[in-house]
């Protein structure tokens, strides 16, 4: 099972990864980070296939994927 690490403090909630995710497995959190942005979170870690599309479009390089 892949492990996705999203740096919540870096995320600006631009939603590019949400649009890129082929499994629609990313959503905006209800919580905010210190900058005042709603950061993104993975809905179901088991549903992720570690394709890296979210990483490719993330301007903040806030996503790290391990497998």
């Amino acid at each position: 099972m892949p492990k996705i690490i999203i740096a919540q403090s870096k995320c600006k909630g631009c939603e590019l990864c949400i649009l890129a995710c082929s499994k629609k497995n990313i959503r905006l959190s209800q919580k905010m980070n210190k900058k005042g942005f709603h950061y993104v979170e993975i809905i179901d870690p088991d549903n992720c296939n570690a394709c890296g599309l979210c990483f490719q479009v993330c301007p903040e390089v806030a996503i790290e994927i391990w497998k």
Partner: peptide, 17 residues
Amino acid sequence: MKKLFGKPESLTTVNHK
């Protein structure tokens, strides 16, 4: 576990503005 995607070495950890 192997890192598939992550920050390249040529980027610093500074947050973009």
